[in-house]
Design a protein around this nucleic acid. Structure first.
Lengths: 216, 216, 216, 216
DNA sequence: TATGAATGAGTTTTCATTCAT
DNA sequence: GATGAATGAAAACTCATTCAT
């Protein structure tokens, strides 16, 4: 019974699992991480029992959703690098189009409880590192190509955009244009050749990983 | 004319009221608006009953804290204008030093429930308008003095910084340097003469107030 | 400080006492014996503290109201005997006009808790006996004059009319005609020469007092 | 056509539901409608949660109990008509044997809050009408057969006996003989050929229904 | 295996009673 | 003595989690 990750699952069981994760992702994004478990189950079209069979408690579910998001982001980051014509374009694409980041942000950054949880999770940590590594590649490349200011590190990018993405999503559709503009302002702040030096030294991805280890 | 509601309170009662509001502000900022009422009461050094005597229910308390924060911010904004040597300096000061904004952000921006609540509150609305008005003065002056890019409005500033301030405060002290840097990036994005035009038109404070009215 | 019953009271204190009792009586009648103490105090125009100075707890207040009512009823009963032209008239008058009985009924009969309380109260018991004694005189006289059926005792009267009076008063004004009619039906049931013998033997006032003692 | 709402319930769930309703009925009758929900749950042998799963709040439970009682009474009324040898016998049987009426009386007549609640409940209203209709049949028949006085309507009967039934039941077993006698007195008051005309005109069942509609 | 019923601990809220002013 | 603020125990209600079907 210790078989492969998610191999031996009956067809319907696998489908349920998918629906649960999808529902959780949506509901977390809409309502935050405190939604009743029954709500999640209902949205997934299953009973609570089924939900609890897959995920022993709320934490496990949150963790799973976060893992999935992180891994999606990691994949998207890689694709962004591969398919973009410039490092700057890759950066913009990664940051703008990664819808998953919303959930990620909701989960990882809103509550410090959740944050701590993820620190204990090997798989999540792996994906997180992967994202940061790719981000560093992008950052390096963009700085080489002269589009990104030199005094920022991958960690700075991660911080700035986690802020941007924390915006409660889905609810305030009317705010979207305002957010697009805020996004633009941030990009402008990041561009090479802009004004003032930042205080301190670039935040690298090692800084973030270290912090994670320290427990913050 | 400002006397009004909270006049005739016994000395100890007034003290308790203050402690409750202070405790609530702190706890909301630390833990979000869902902390148990008992926790708030305990931190304020009073019994739950006392808390409920002042605020008939949680909503009333949240509203009161938000009002207070908004009014503090409004005052700080005015002071920033008066005491700063340039409009840009006023902007930076307002944005950086307004610790109250943390609570405000927690309350107003994190949950849309809370947001709606505030829309029904005349006093809160008045302060909010006041903040935005002062912000517009600063924006106008800064654009005249050539320090702030021309294609942003007071609303843009409000949005960008509400994002920045949403960061769960007080808890992650380790993040502070990172946040300072993010702050710097945003300021650089706002500076006159920066790169690319933003999409759409400036978000004015009327936009924000209208949105508030629409309810959306 | 063990002086006479309610002698040494400052003028305002006496006034307060009266207002409290009056308010309590009203509110008990309107809302039942579970009204918040603050409500009673407010209606009496005093603070809760004042109320508690006079009556160490809710039970004491209830007891006092009941005592007062019982003693009013006893007085009214005596007057009814003295001022009526016939025993039957006295009975009808006593039963119909004694508005106090409403409160009395509310208190004594609705809840058995209250009932028990009164059993422990010497003064209340004294008034109660007085009422029953007068009622027995009326019953005896009415039966001698041939207007009241012979197979009922003072206890039966007390029971029947306590039922009638239990009607939540004051609220359903629209029911008043209906209640008048019910009252008439009962009187007709009590008239001499009516139909069927009742089961058992007349309930005397001793029965009621005994029951009271037994604790029921 | 009577199937409907409560069909698809698991065996144990249905049992629990029954126990809850039974317990509620008992406890309401014993203690009135203000008993703690936990008490009801305990008596039913379930957790509070279970109780709240079936009935979203106290009001819903009270409503359900009242519905059930009313519907039982309606059924009993029909049986009384069918199985009795005379209309008078039917009346006596209905009034004496309907134990359910106790609960009904507790709920409907004691507190006006509860009364209002029932007015909003279609099913309860239906049963209530049914009871009154059957009562009218009985009244008409009894008057035709000359056993019931002519100047009363179904509404009068309902009023008189709701008074009688308001007696807190079950607790004061010692009062039962006294109540039986009061019951007898009332019946004698209702008999044809008795004394004095009643004030006003007969209270019909339309009067009661109208009143219900008026809300007053 | 899936389901949704049951449980009970945790929260919100009320109110009798005490106590500082 | 009067007042109304403070207290905390108790009641209503919610929801994470377990368990019978």
């Amino acid at each position: 019974m210790v078989a492969g990750p998610e191999v031996k699952l009956r067809a319907d069981a696998r489908r349920n699992l998918g629906q649960i994760l999808a529902a959780a992702r949506t509901v977390f994004a809409e309502t935050g991480p405190d939604v009743p478990m029954e709500e999640i189950a209902r949205r997934a079209g299953v009973g609570v029992g089924t939900l609890y069979r897959r995920f022993p408690d709320r934490e496990a579910l949150v963790r799973a959703v976060a893992r999935e998001s992180l891994s999606d982001v990691a994949a998207e980051a890689r694709r962004a690098v591969e398919e973009s014509s410039s490092a700057w374009a890759a950066l913009v694409r990664l940051l703008r189009h990664s819808r998953q980041l919303h959930v990620l942000a909701q989960l990882t950054l809103l509550s410090s409880r959740t944050r701590e949880m993820l620190c204990d999770d090997a798989e999540a940590r792996r994906s997180y590192r992967e994202v940061l590594t790719t981000l560093r590649e992008i950052v390096n490349a963009a700085q080489r190509e002269g589009t990104l200011r030199d005094d920022v590190g991958a960690g700075d990018i991660a911080v700035v955009f986690s802020l941007l993405l924390k915006q409660t999503p889905a609810t305030h559709t009317s705010d979207l244009p305002a957010l697009e503009r805020a996004f633009g302002l941030m990009l402008d702040g990041l561009r090479a050749r802009t004004g003032t030096p930042l205080p301190g030294r670039p935040i690298t991805e090692e800084d973030l990983l270290a912090e994670e280890t320290r427990g913050s």
